[in-house]
C-alpha cells in the first residue's frame, strides 16, 4: 500500500518509524523541537517523543557533530540535523577528522553509526551562505557515506537504511524537493545504500543526475521523448560509496552521457563520474565526449534571475542532452 506524501513528510515518517522502533534513535539539532525544524521537516515529533529524544541544541555546529560522534560511539543511534548545509563548515573537524576516521584509526574496534541530515541547494533566494551544495567535500573523505535522495519514496527508504547503517552517513536533502509529492509505501522499509537506480529507461543518451537534478532530468526526458530522443536517467542515490555498475552499463548501451548536478562544476561529483566512465569499459562505447552540466563556479547570487542561471534548469538539461545526441556519431 502506498499514498502520496511530500518529500518532507516522507522524511518525517522515516524518523518517526525509526524512533518508534528503536529506543537508541534520537533526533537533535537547532530548532528541531517545538519549532519543528527550519523547514518544518520534524514537525510533531517533539510532541510525540518529548524533549529527551527530540532535542533542541544551542547554535553550536561543532558540538552537534561531536555529540553525534560520541553518542554513536557508545551505543546510541543519533540523527543530527545541521539546519543549512552551509553551516556544516562549522562541523568539519568532528566529521572529517573524528567521525570518519575513528573506526580505521582504532583498528576497526569501534563503529560510529549516526545520520547527519542537512538541507542543501539554491532556489530559495537565500543567497550565498544558505544555498550551498557541499556534498562532494564529504565524498572525498574515506569513512563517511553520502546519500542524496531525489524522491519522497527514496528519501524515506534511504533514511531508514542510513539509520540502520553502522557508519556515519551525511544525508543531503534538497530544500526545493521538500514540497514535491510522490507515491510512498506505508510502513517500515529500507532501501539499501550504495545502490544506483535507473529512474527512466532510454536508448539514446544517459543522464546521470543527483538530488533535485534527477527531477529536472526526468522532466527534460519527457520533453525529449516528444522529439523522439529516448533518455535514460540514472540516479546514484548514494554518492559514496558509489555503485558505479548501473552507470557504466547504461553508457555502454547509449554511448552518450551527460552528468548533471547543482554543485559548482569544478571539483564536483561530476568529475568523479566522468573519470570512472573514462576508466571503464564504457569508454570504448562512447560516441561523443562525456559532458557535464553543473552549477556555475560562483557563490549563489541573491538576484532571482542570476540565481536561476547559476543552477541547471530543465531546458538546460534538455538542450545539453539534445546537443549530445546530435553530435558526432
Amino acid at each position: 500500500m502506498s499514498r502520496e506524501l511530500t518529500y518532507a513528510e516522507a522524511i518525517r515518517e522515516a524518523i518517526d518509524l525509526a524512533m518508534a522502533r528503536d529506543e537508541r534513535v534520537f533526533l537533535f539539532g537547532e530548532d528541531v523541537g517545538v519549532y519543528g525544524g527550519a523547514f518544518g521537516v520534524t514537525e510533531g515529533l517533539y510532541q510525540k517523543y518529548g524533549p529527551e529524544r527530540v532535542r533542541d541544541t544551542p547554535i553550536s555546529e561543532a558540538v552537534i557533530a561531536g555529540v553525534a560522534t560520541g553518542a554513536a560511539l557508545t551505543g546510541m543511534r543519533p540523527i543530527a540535523e545541521i539546519q543549512f548545509m552551509d553551516f556544516i563548515t562549522l562541523s568539519m573537524e568532528q566529521l572529517v577528522l573524528q567521525a570518519a576516521k575513528l573506526r580505521f584509526m582504532l583498528g576497526g574496534k569501534v563503529a560510529v553509526p549516526f545520520v547527519l541530515r542537512t538541507p542543501a541547494g539554491a532556489g530559495t533566494g537565500a543567497a550565498a551562505q544558505h544555498s550551498e551544495s557541499l556534498e562532494n567535500w564529504f565524498v572525498h573523505v574515506p569513512g563517511l557515506k553520502v546519500v542524496m535522495p531525489s524522491t519522497p519514496a527514496d528519501a524515506k527508504g534511504l533514511l531508514l537504511g542510513a539509520i540502520e547503517d553502522p557508519n556515519p552517513v551525511i544525508f543531503v536533502e534538497h530544500k526545493l524537493l521538500y514540497r514535491v509529492k510522490g507515491e510512498v509505501p506505508e510502513g517500515y522499509y529500507t532501501l539499501p545504500l550504495s545502490r544506483s537506480q535507473v529512474k527512466r529507461r532510454g536508448r539514446d543518451v544517459t543522464v546521470v543526475a543527483t538530488s533535485l537534478m534527477v527531477q529536472r532530468a526526468l522532466e527534460a526526458a519527457a520533453q525529449l521523448a516528444a522529439e523522439g530522443i529516448e533518455v535514460e536517467v540514472v540516479d546514484p542515490c548514494t554518492l559514496k560509496p558509489l555503485d558505479s555498475d548501473p552507470i557504466v552499463r547504461s553508457v555502454v548501451k547509449t554511448g552518450r552521457v551527460l552528468i548533471v548536478h547543482e554543485a559548482c562544476k569544478t571539483g564536483g561529483f561530476g568529475g568523479e563520474v566522468a573519470a570512472l566512465i573514462a576508466e571503464s569499459e564504457a569508454f570504448d562505447f562512447l560516441d561523443a565526449p562525456i559532458r557535464r552540466l553543473a552549477g556555475l563556479d560562483i557563490p549563489v547570487p541573491y538576484n532571482r534571475e542570476l540565481e536561476r542561471r547559476m543552477v541547471p534548469q530543465v531546458d538546460d538539461i534538455a538542450a545539453a542532452a539534445r546537443r549530445l545526441v546530435r553530435e558526432a556519431c
Binding site: A62, V63, A65, G66, V67, A68, T69, G70, A71, A72, L73, T74, G75, M76, P78, Q94, Q98
Partner: peptide, 9 residues
C-alpha cells in the same frame, strides 16, 4: 565535543 556525546549517551 565528543565527550558531550558520550555524556548524553
Amino acid at each position: 565535543p565528543m565527550a558531550a556525546g558520550v555524556g548524553l549517551s
